[in-house]
Design a protein around this nucleic acid. Structure first.
Lengths: 133, 133
DNA sequence: TATTGTTATACTCTATAACTATA
DNA sequence: TATAGTTATAGAGTATAACAATA
């Protein structure tokens, strides 16, 4: 229940409408783990390929990511973050332009540390059925 | 990002289709905080009144909650959980019938304790702008 | 005139099924 | 024949705007 309400809160408080939170999530994964195919990205993001196709199309239209042909398999393509995409994410992170940042700044160091550890556990829970790939 | 992916995961792994997770959340709030008006419930759940109207209608149709006239204000109504609603939630909790329970059982005691503390902090974060009411 | 709640409508994100192209 | 990806379509959940009833 807490997770669901936080999710709704994040969507509502997401005051930078340049890109949606889903798009941001995909972009973050691409930056963290490097270029990958649409299928791999869908897998990482825990959505089905058609859902990822829509997100990819939106980000391509914004020129934040780009499709390149796969070197060996003509069916696949490789998605990578453009210079503009990196700039956008860099701006957002460095500028602390989000409601979330101000909320987190209210916490004590102990609480921040605890949350950091909890996120690791929760992330692993989410990854459990997927594997490190 | 972790919160969003957990939210998607919970929706996908929600294997008991008797009621949706949103309906479950509303029911949990009503059980925890007692009967209240639709407006108050929408406020607690961080959704707008029209969204809550839909959830309430679904739960009323399932006879899990019921509307009663407000004692002093004819515009409002009071939503309370029915006997069937209590029974459903009781069954679900005691039966540990969810994917989530099995996932959590994989964790060590230390991890469980840490998560429990983290949920308190996250819950307060979510409540910060709303107040104890 | 203000407030509570509902109805009407539209948007976002997700999914399954069907289709195209390549392996 | 199987796989990767896209397109078509539908469902769930949320929002804003407009409306009805009551304070």
């Amino acid at each position: 229940m807490v997770v669901m309400r936080l999710d709704r809160l994040l969507r509502v408080r997401h005051t930078d409408p340049q890109i949606s939170l889903i798009q941001r999530s995909a972009l973050t994964t691409l930056l963290r783990d490097g270029a990958m195919t649409p299928g791999a990205l869908a897998h990482r993001e825990r959505v089905r390929p058609p859902s990822m196709t829509r997100t990819i199309n939106a980000l391509v239209a914004l020129k934040l990511i780009e499709r390149s042909p796969h070197p060996t398999d003509g069916r696949q393509s490789v998605i990578s973050v453009t210079r503009a995409g990196r700039a956008l994410m860099s701006d957002e992170v460095s500028g602390h332009r989000f409601w979330l940042a101000s909320q987190l700044s209210r916490l004590s160091d102990e609480q921040t540390t605890l949350l950091r550890q909890a996120l690791v556990i929760l992330g692993q829970l989410g990854d459990a059925e997927i594997g490190p790939d």
